[in-house]
Amino acid sequence: MSILVDGSTRVVVQGITGRAGSFHARACLDYGTRIVAGVTPGRGGQKLDDRVPIFDSVAEAKQLTGCNASLIFVPASGAVDAMLETAASGIELIVCITEGIPILDMVRARRSLEGTSTRLIGPNCPGVITPGQCKIGIMPGYIHKPGPVGIVSRSGTLTYEAVWQLSQTGIGQSSCVGIGGDPVHGLGLREVIEMFDRDPATEAILVIGEIGGCEEQEAAVFWETSSRKPTAVFLAGVTAPPGRRMGHAGAVITGTSGTVAAKIEAFQAVGIPIILSPADIGKGMAKALAAAVT
């Protein structure tokens, strides 16, 4: 078991003929992901490397290949269109890698996805991987190894660093989900944590958060009531200068909740250990696991 994706997931890549799309489609195929289709409007009938059929629309790809997850590399100006097309065709999971999507477009996209059965990961994210089974994203596959820790993160390369440290320490991962760095995005920290909590293959959870917003606090509340799996948290940006992205009136909504200090407090209030140094993520997770055994 795992969350969101496994060896049976059938993936369509939107924007498969672009530079990033074709490069990562190949990398996912090499990892063993079942990339069954590509979509680039106007390029239907062609193939990627003589093995992946390309279609003009997601609906067509779904009808002919039975794909049930989509990986989006469409540029920012067309990415929301690609997401809505996927949702309209009834595909259950969208992983959107694209960065630079206007926030108001994402506001409308999220609203449109409400009430549908489609779940969105990203945008501006590394994607999701279930080690040894399925990689839908741009993360380097080989640093992962199958195991008990579920990772959810708002970051990209910092997650790779964390995975690397875990794998070096001999701790494998059940699934790793990068939810993306944009202010308005798909699945949140809390939703992914709940999935990990329900997943029998996940024995422990690593949360990687950062400054801005208040998703960490919303996630922390989860441990007030739930039966818990050992969890550790790392938060990036404790020394970031305030106010570079957050406007004056933004503080009215969030108060000081965007700071790392406020997030640390929220996790400590529910007894979740905080890993203070990014060099200690592997060790910190090992400690959380060991504490759970005893």
Partner: peptide, 26 residues
Amino acid sequence: VGLSGEIGCMVNGAGLAMATMDILHR
């Protein structure tokens, strides 16, 4: 983003870049 310290940092990825700033502080 310009800051006022003495170590010039070049990192790939925003989260890792922030974590790098944090560990230098440590």
